[in-house]
Amino acid sequence: MPITWNPELDTGIDVIDQQHRRIVNYINALEVANATRDRAAIGRTLDELVEYTISHFAFEESLQEEAGYAFSKPHKRVHELFVRRVNEYVERHRLGDDIGDELYKLLATWLVNHIKRDDSDYVGAVKANMIGIIAEKRERQDGGWFRRFFRRAA
Rank of each mutant, 00 (worst) to 15 (best):
V15E: 14
E66Y: 09
R92G: 05
G68M: 12
M1L: 12
A154C: 12
R39L: 06
Q141V: 15
G132K: 11
E66I: 10
K76C: 10
L49H: 09
Q141D: 13
K127Y: 06
G143P: 01
E31K: 05
A70Q: 15
K137S: 13
I23F: 05
E60D: 07
Y89L: 09
A125Q: 06
A153F: 07
E80C: 05
F146P: 02
Q19M: 03
Y104L: 04
P7K: 12
W110R: 08
I16K: 03
L103G: 02
T45P: 08
G43V: 05
Y122E: 02
L111W: 05
F57I: 09
V32Y: 10
L9Q: 05
R138E: 15
G96I: 10
N87G: 06
D47L: 11
L107F: 14
D98A: 13
D98V: 12
T53N: 07
W5K: 00
N129G: 09
V123L: 04
L81V: 10
E65D: 11
V78M: 12
G143T: 02
E66G: 11
V78A: 14
N25G: 14
G143F: 03
E48F: 10
F146T: 12
R85F: 15
I131Q: 14
V126L: 07
D119L: 05
R148Y: 10
F82T: 15
L49S: 00
V86I: 15
V32F: 03
K127P: 01
T109K: 14
Y26H: 15
D14C: 05
M130T: 04
K73N: 11
F150P: 04
V15G: 06
R92V: 07
W145Q: 15
L107R: 01
E139Q: 14
L111F: 14
S120K: 14
V123W: 07
R44L: 14
R151V: 13
E91K: 13
G68R: 09
I134K: 06
T109A: 12
E139G: 13
S120H: 13
F59T: 02
A41M: 09
Q64A: 06
N6S: 09
V86K: 00
L106K: 11
I16T: 05
A41V: 00
G96S: 13
I42A: 01
A70E: 15
I3W: 02
I99R: 01
R37C: 08
A128W: 01
L95A: 14
E91N: 11
E8Q: 08
V78P: 04
L63C: 00
R94E: 10
T45V: 13
D17C: 02
T11G: 00
A135I: 11
N129R: 13
E65C: 09
P2M: 09
A153C: 01
S62M: 13
D97I: 02
E65A: 12
Y104R: 07
E80Y: 00
R85K: 15
E136Y: 10
Y122Q: 04
E60L: 01
E66T: 12
W5G: 00
A29D: 13
D97S: 02
E80A: 12
L95W: 08
F149P: 01
N28G: 06
K116E: 08
F71S: 00
A35P: 04
H93K: 01
N28W: 10
D17N: 04
A154H: 14
W110M: 03
I54R: 09
L106I: 06
A125Y: 02
R77V: 07
M130I: 15
P74I: 03
D47Y: 10
G43W: 03
D47S: 13
V123F: 00
K76N: 10
A41L: 01
E88I: 08
